[in-house]
Simulated assay, not measured.
Amino acid sequence: MPLKLQSTFPALSLFGVLATLLSLPGLFGCQFPPKIDHGRYTKLFSIFSTEYKYECDSGYTLVGEEKISCSDSVWSPAAPQCKALCRTPEIANGKLSVYKIHYIEPETVTVQCNTGYGVVGSERITCLENRTWYPEVPKCERKILAGCEQVLAGKHLMQCLPGSQDVKLALEVYKLSLEIDVLELERNKEKAFQEP
């Protein structure tokens, strides 16, 4: 080895050993940085500090400061958390109380149905750590007002009829049946009124 390199080699070796020792968190009184669920940390290159940066797995977002360092034997600030991101649920004939592209666990939102529709299921849902909604996302279904059941049944009947003449005949028969129901109702009222 040339003489010039021999004289610098020990200095470089000593510098390497010092750099390694200084980069150990334990030397400054801190253990290794806290581990976080759904994420990891990496050491930021610096000879004289112990600074680490956190990042989250795909589908999770960092809540808190992304960098921490050892100061007075304590990691500061506190380690962040990786919180789940839930996608916006699609709700036909309805909407959410608060609209976002992603919701962060444990956010809770309320499902609101359009006029004439009602919530089937729980109207309040919460984003969970596994990136799903709990309870299951409800549906908005058309409300059937009292007394409208027969009209809806007639609508389904007409969809099964082959031609317009058949539909017309079915409507006439349906109209007659409603008129008969009204007449019977009036007759029963008169009968009840006449009885002592």
Rank of each mutant, 00 (worst) to 15 (best):
P2G: 12
L3G: 11
L5V: 14
Q6L: 13
Q6C: 09
S7E: 15
T8P: 03
F9M: 15
L12T: 04
L18C: 14
A19W: 12
T20V: 15
L21V: 13
L24G: 14
G26C: 14
L27Q: 07
L27W: 07
C30I: 03
C30W: 00
C30K: 02
P33A: 06
G39D: 04
R40A: 11
Y41P: 05
L44R: 10
I47P: 02
T50D: 07
E51K: 09
K53L: 06
K53D: 03
D57P: 01
Y60P: 06
T61W: 03
I68T: 03
P77D: 07
P77S: 12
A79Y: 01
P80V: 02
C82D: 01
C82T: 00
A84D: 02
A84H: 03
C86K: 00
R87E: 09
R87P: 08
T88L: 06
I91W: 01
G94T: 01
G94E: 02
L96H: 00
S97K: 07
V98Y: 04
K100G: 03
I101L: 14
H102E: 12
Y103P: 00
E107F: 01
E107G: 01
T108D: 06
V111C: 00
Q112C: 09
C113Q: 01
N114I: 11
G116N: 13
G118H: 11
V119L: 09
V119M: 09
V120A: 10
V120W: 07
G121V: 04
E123S: 08
I125P: 00
T126S: 07
L128S: 10
L128R: 08
E129D: 12
E129F: 02
E129H: 04
R131T: 05
W133C: 00
W133L: 00
Y134M: 05
Y134G: 01
C140S: 04
R142I: 05
L152G: 06
A153K: 09
G154S: 15
L157Q: 13
M158R: 10
L161C: 08
L161Q: 05
P162N: 11
G163H: 10
G163Q: 11
E172W: 10
Y174R: 03
Y174H: 06
K175A: 12
K175N: 14
E186M: 06
K189R: 15
A192R: 12
F193P: 05
Q194L: 10
E195Q: 15
